[in-house]
Each structure stands twice: as C-alpha cells, then as structure tokens.
Simulated assay, not measured.
Amino acid sequence: MAIDIGISEGDRKSIADGLSNLLSDTYVLYLKTHNFHWNVTGPSFRTLHLMFEEQYNELALAVDSIAERIRALGFPAPGTYAFYAEHSSIKETQGVPSAEEMIKLLVDGQEAVVRTARSLFPLTDKVSDEPTADLLTQRMQVHEKTAWMLRSLLPQ
C-alpha cells in the first residue's frame, strides 16, 4: 500500500538514507562502548565500567528507534556490520586503549553522532518532517549530555 504522509517518496528516501547513516554511527558507537565496558582497567574501573554499561544500553534502545523511523518512512532499515562500517563516520578502535583514551574516543564518537543528526535538519525542516526532527533532537540531547559527562572525567 502506498505511503501518503505528506512527504514525497524522494524526500522520504533522502531522510531514510540520512537516518541510515545515523543508525550506522549509533551502532558503531554502541559496539565501541560495549567493547570498552568489557576491557576498561585502572583505578576508575568500576565507575567507567558502570557508566559505559548505561551508555551502551541507551544506545541499544536508540538503534531500534532510528530503525523504526526508517521503516515508518517506507524503507528497509540496514542491519549489517558491513553497511554500518561503510556508512559510519566513527571508526573502529584497534587494540585496548587506556581508560583515558577510551573516554576521549567515546567523546569523539558521541560528538560524531550529534554532527550526523544535525546534518539532517535542513531536509526535515524543508519537508516538515517533525517526527524525524523530534527523534534527531532527542538523540542530540542525549549525545551532547553524554559527551559533556565523559569530558568531565578528563583532566583539565
């Protein structure tokens, strides 16, 4: 059945493509955060281990919300590691960095997700796609706050 929500198929496709990039960033950040949760060591182990767990749990819920919005727009949600690796602005981290480096890498990842989300606003504004704009706003709030909290753990 055709989708008639007041946004053309071409515009819905462009938004879905942008959301697919956001989904890719979010999933790669989820994997990185989960990896760091498992492998963090040092005097801040417990604090970081628990904080990273909270963050990857939040990211797991976020990927579902983003994928469901792509589906609501009428397009398949990507779900492969290959797609995510190709479309994410966040790169994998090789090896096991120090706890401080983990924090820095996660700040970079959180901010990358914000930039990807922010880049979709011109199109969502143009076509009055408030549901997507709302999702983007919510994601940006979470990622900006998380980046701030992580940054606060670093030496000044």
Rank of each mutant, 00 (worst) to 15 (best):
S20H: 05
G74C: 09
S128L: 13
I70K: 01
T33K: 11
G109V: 06
F36P: 00
M102F: 06
P97S: 07
Q141G: 11
M140D: 01
R46I: 14
R139D: 03
V63T: 15
L136Y: 01
A67Q: 04
T80K: 04
T93S: 14
R139F: 04
I66C: 05
G79H: 10
F36D: 00
T146M: 13
T146H: 10
W38K: 11
L105P: 01
K91P: 01
H143M: 10
A77T: 03
H87K: 15
V96D: 10
F75H: 05
R139A: 11
R139E: 08
P43M: 14
M102T: 02
V28D: 08
K32Q: 13
L19V: 02
L22A: 11
E86M: 05
E92V: 09
L22R: 01
T33P: 07
V107Y: 08
H49E: 06
P131R: 02
M140S: 09
S98W: 06
H87I: 03
A133I: 02
I70A: 02
A82Q: 14
Q138H: 10
E92C: 02
A112W: 05
E58I: 11
F52V: 02
H49T: 07
N35F: 10
R46M: 14
E86L: 03
E54M: 06
I103N: 00
K145H: 12
D25W: 01
V40Q: 03
M140P: 02
L105N: 15
D134S: 10
M102Q: 13
S20N: 05
T124H: 01
N57T: 14
G42F: 05
L50A: 09
V114M: 04
F83D: 09
K32A: 01
P122Y: 08
E130A: 12
V40L: 10
H37P: 03
L48I: 09
M51R: 14
V114P: 01
H37T: 07
Q94P: 01
R115E: 15
T26M: 06
A72N: 10
T47V: 13
H49Y: 09
N21I: 01
T33G: 04
L31G: 03
S20Q: 07
P131A: 08
T116E: 02
G42M: 04
Q138D: 15
A60K: 12
L19N: 00
A117C: 11
V127A: 08
M102R: 00
T116I: 02
R71D: 06
A85T: 13
E101S: 10
S89L: 05
Y56V: 07
E68G: 08
Y84P: 00
D25S: 04
I70T: 00
E54W: 03
Q94M: 12
E100I: 06
S20R: 03
A82V: 11
